[in-house]
Design a protein around this nucleic acid. Sequence first.
DNA 1: TTATTAATATAACCCAAAGTTATGAAGTTG
DNA 2: CAACTTCATAACTTTGGGTTATATTAATAA
Lengths: 316, 316
Amino acid sequence: MKLDPRHLEILAAVVDNGGVTEAARAIGKSQPSLSRTITLLENRVDRPLFASNKRPLVPTEFCLQLAAEGRKILKANHAAGEIVSSYKSGRSGAVRLAGTPFFMDGVISGMIATFQTLHQDIRIDQSYCYPLDVFADLRNGVLDLGIIPIRASEVPDDMTFDQILRGRNVIACRAGHSLTRKSVVRLNDLTSYPWIAPPVDSPLYHDLRAGLEGIGVKHFKISFTGGSLSAVINVLSESDALTVLPYSVVFRMRPQNRLTALSIRIGDPERHLGILTLTNNRLEPAAKRLMNYITTEFKSLSAIIHHHEQNELWRK
Amino acid sequence: MKLDPRHLEILAAVVDNGGVTEAARAIGKSQPSLSRTITLLENRVDRPLFASNKRPLVPTEFCLQLAAEGRKILKANHAAGEIVSSYKSGRSGAVRLAGTPFFMDGVISGMIATFQTLHQDIRIDQSYCYPLDVFADLRNGVLDLGIIPIRASEVPDDMTFDQILRGRNVIACRAGHSLTRKSVVRLNDLTSYPWIAPPVDSPLYHDLRAGLEGIGVKHFKISFTGGSLSAVINVLSESDALTVLPYSVVFRMRPQNRLTALSIRIGDPERHLGILTLTNNRLEPAAKRLMNYITTEFKSLSAIIHHHEQNELWRK
DNA sequence: TTATTAATATAACCCAAAGTTATGAAGTTG
DNA sequence: CAACTTCATAACTTTGGGTTATATTAATAA
């Protein structure tokens, strides 16, 4: 005997409200509607649900048992509604984001941490990849947000790019490096130190080569390559090696006092950090929330960096 | 956000069966029907339930959460179905029956006890009343079965009477009463003992008066009246008093060896014990079951009584 | 009993949607 | 890329839930 779960819901409402009139008011339907549903259900189960000829409807034992099941259905259905609105409002959900490793580890992961203290029910799946992979993953739907440095002209037609930070790479070295004491850094200074290279397929690596060549540096020795940001930082801070890093990453590590940036800009000044999304793929509210959060965080980060530059770095 | 519980049921089925095709087979509907339900639900919740462009349908996190609720609904609904078929088959239910107190206590209650060991899920609401009340209670639906002694001509038009035992009242006294040793009981013998009268509004009381007057007894002293069967039995067995009881009641108490019946029939030979029901009121299967049980029990009781009469009582 | 009141049942209608079959489109697999 | 499987769409029918208006009926008061 297969029943309509809606009928059981209504039955529960009628029993719990002591009659069809009240129940109708309670669930926002008309009295005749409920009345007929009850009759229909009675026919289905081939048995009366309420004592006949009683005006404050008095449920039979049988009816009470069914109503109990109806109550369970009502409860589960309500829970489902809660889930939906929780996702709708972005209180729950899952966001899949990916980005270049050094940015992710150096800046984004910290932001994600604070974001998650605010939204425990939003799950974040973070992965690392370079622009070309981000394009592919966004397109086949395994990714919601991509955080990458890119030139405006490189943004594919089907994607939207929201810039969050002006791109700027710097040459980084350990705090207290002898180069930091020089007021002017010459090319010779750069080539005399070993270099740590980011992963070879990363934009940073490209910037390293192109940037150094751009300022006339042709030959330089690479002492270490690959690995994660923390590996690079470790090597960098324990040696006199140089590397190229996004300035924001260096800036964020300022409190640790392990590295510093030389006042030499390097890399493509047209490439900026931003969030890449599929234009036609309406974002989950949760993803939108995270995106907004990161955007505003970067706004204040930019402001602080700007302020800092005015007061300290360039005054040196 | 109010969802259709049927949609959640179907969602659960699809998730649990790994696709619409299998789910459709499982719940006995067409594949397009489920497919469209899913799309409809997706529109309602304004969010995809399955990853797009995947052929063995892969549910989203969100979908899984909703499906979990759907599973609860499915379960409750199934339980409701079980309740219905349990009532349908008469395995569960409630039976309200009433009858004259002495019959109920003396015969019926014992039968109910054994019936309930067979059907624990059938609740029995027993009460006591006399024919006129039984008529009324059957009519206003507070009673399913009435077990009363009645003449065929007295059965109301709207009721059905199924005889279960030929009526016969006897004069009862304690076992070992001096009257039992007399081969012939004369009127004088009857009037010289005190009488215990059943409740004044009972048929038995009427039988007592009418019966004694019928055989010429005009004056007799009543030493005790009212109370329940057990009170009457107690008084009867501790004294030399006489009373009128249904023979079946006396017979059933035979094993206790507390009372015995004199070989004098008394009362209305046209009035028989039977089960009274409303003709147009289809009985609950549970009630029908109890009715059948009582009927067959009485059949064997009659047979035993008959056998017993042939061999013992009337041979004295 | 009868009149009043409140609750429920019925009627007649409309429309959303569930069910169907037939068919098209899109992944998956060899 | 061809074959296969699985899902989506189209077009149509039918069920039944929603509505308002109205009739019944039970409880209550007079």
